[in-house]
Design a protein around this nucleic acid. Structure first.
Lengths: 347, 347
DNA sequence: GGAGTTGTTGAAAGCGTTTTCAGAAAGCGC
DNA sequence: GCGCTTTCTGAAAACGCTTTCAACAACTCC
């Protein structure tokens, strides 16, 4: 009882009557140790309530066993499932997770960059390209989420199949509901997801021999309000359309509101579809037809690729996660009771 | 160019022609350093792209500058804003954030417990009481979120004003809408929030001299489906009621569905109110009247109390964050356009 | 002009692990 | 039995910082 300091590996060694090297070995399982000694060590650790100092291990071994997650901001329906996937996969792989919402890159770099982390997960553009270059220049493990690297640096990317998803949606509107004048509400300027969704939109039109009409493109900003305004604008201009692909679910809400307010019936007169399948999509009335992205899987996959990199293996340059059509009511498909049952098509 | 190893404090010292102690001092600002030397040091750090090894600092200083967050699972509308508050406050206070969703307590303890973290934030019951005792026994800084400590250990707690919020809601239903037979759907067994909400419910009834009727209490599990079933049950039994306090917003959705399916009009015949004000509450039809909890603030406050503890100061034993009534349509108040404008009463 | 002060500095002792290295013990083939 | 591996083990050297300690210089005050 005399000493009050928390036990160190040396205390354990003394207690078990072995060297500290041996204790370290049973702790890490790096080298076989005689069974009886190993047992003594384990017992001693138990009795002394020994908890190894992480910092000391890192310093000595030069491996931090930690991965850093850098994101622009914590919010929205995207964030929670993605973090869930990342957290789970990271811990399964034996890594701890350091989370940094990037405001001051400098601070983040100091703590999350090289030396202090074994690898970095970077969501959208939360890190300056120059930093990306720097890290890449000495092969620091980095994986990008929902963002392609600048200037074709070969940094692995995980993203979702925006193009396919959008094409499925548009295809459905055309084939099942005979829509031909479909509005597309773009997301924020420079948003990669938006660009790909638009590409899917165009390709689907082409497949069905429907000409692209720039009058049908407006800016929805992936945002409720902005989409609301955009649709009001289109209506005011007297543009003729029979469906709206809102870019994402938030914008779909705004679009629906604007249409209803103007006295148009959704989906009888005009179909509205979103993208993302956020939790409340099913609770809208009419329930929203949209595309579901496997966000949690994106997180897991990102960690998987990152661990590869950290192990010196080769990682996939681009991983596109499949998206899935979620058909509800807002496209014009029939509601199946108030329960909002849904049909979904894999692709 | 000869050496390829990343620069250490020694390299910086050599480069700036000072001792490593001096470099350390300008790095930490612990002791004044002559201006010209300090400049040389800063210049050297810049030129060498020096990034201090976190582990070495921790080992030498015995302060990890890291706080750990332990939670049962990452999900739901609760999580995202709370983490946002925690993350922001932690970094503002100069701490890093280690996130652990607790599956195996053992692993979590090893990495998050004493020595490896300066303090711990614990959400609901993600840590065994015995561990709590252990940590408390040597004064390890811990703050609990939405959970009161076992056996009156004096561990600081941050929670929201469930009772007041519920009482405001019930009061509103009675005073503004003349409801007198109000159902309460309990949350999961043993859920503290649920217990307090029920207490608020009862007190509000009492204030208005309405007797408590146990027939009006059912189990909603804070869950869509379970609430749906519960309301169907009440209807089947022929219980008479004119309002439902669903316990939380998820349950409110289920309750509304069940009522509509049975042909009851909400809110004309029966009012429905929730709790939490999750993002989609405003998009339901009718838009949900509920109570908003300042979740992000809870996170910030938790960090604030924890930093106090870590600085050896005294922390508030119990912090109850104010809740706020959010009146929309589902209680019977008039809709103000499709826009879902809302009125809110502070308390 | 001497005795305190005050301000700044470097040397060196840790901090608690992992890992290298060489040695001891044990097993093996003949 | 005698060399040779193979296993296991401990001593000791890192790992890269912070912090204590003593020293030095420059002031300040009588």
């Amino acid at each position: 009882m005399p000493k009050s300091r928390p036990p160190t590996i040396a205390d354990v060694a003394r207690h078990a009557d072995v060297s500290i090297a041996t204790v370290s070995r049973v702790l890490n399982g790096t080298t076989p140790v005689q069974a009886d000694k190993a047992d003594r060590v384990r017992l001693a650790m138990e009795e002394l309530q020994f908890v190894p100092r992480h910092a000391a291990r890192v310093l000595a071994s030069k491996r931090t066993n930690t991965i850093g997650l850098l994101l622009p901001e914590i919010s929205g329906d995207f964030f929670s499932p993605m973090l869930k996937g990342i957290e789970a996969a990271a811990h399964e792989a034996g890594y701890d997770l350091l989370v940094h919402s990037t405001q001051q890159v400098e601070a983040a770099r100091r703590r999350l960059g090289e030396h202090n982390t074994d690898g970095l997960l970077i969501f959208t553009n939360s890190l300056a390209p120059s930093e990306l270059h720097r890290l890449h220049s000495f092969n620091f493990p980095v994986v990008l989420l929902h963002q392609t690297p600048p200037e074709s640096l070969d940094i692995p990317v995980i993203a979702i199949e925006n193009k396919d998803g959008a094409a499925m949606l548009i295809d459905h509107l055309i084939k099942e509901h005979g829509r031909r004048h479909i509005v597309y509400l773009r997301g924020p300027e420079g948003h990669e997801d938006s660009v790909w969704r638009e590409r899917g939109y165009r390709e689907a039109l082409e497949v069905h021999n429907i000409g692209f009409d720039s009058e049908l493109i407006a800016s929805g900003g992936f945002d409720d309000e902005e989409a609301f305004t955009a649709i009001q604008g289109l209506l005011a201009e007297g543009i003729d359309f029979d469906a709206v692909f809102a870019g994402d679910d938030d914008a779909a809400i705004g679009a629906m509101r604007a249409l209803k307010m103007a006295g148009h019936r959704v989906p009888q007169e005009i179909s509205v579809v979103g993208f993302d399948d956020v939790p409340f999509a099913r609770y809208l009335s009419p329930a929203l037809t949209t595309v579901r992205a496997p966000i949690e899987q994106v997180g897991r996959e990102a960690v998987r690729q990152l661990t590869r990199l950290m192990n010196g293996e080769h990682a996939e340059t681009l991983t596109l996660m499949r998206t899935e059509l979620v058909i509800r009511e807002s496209c014009g498909c029939l509601s199946s009771g108030t329960n909002g049952q849904e049909e979904s098509t894999r692709r």
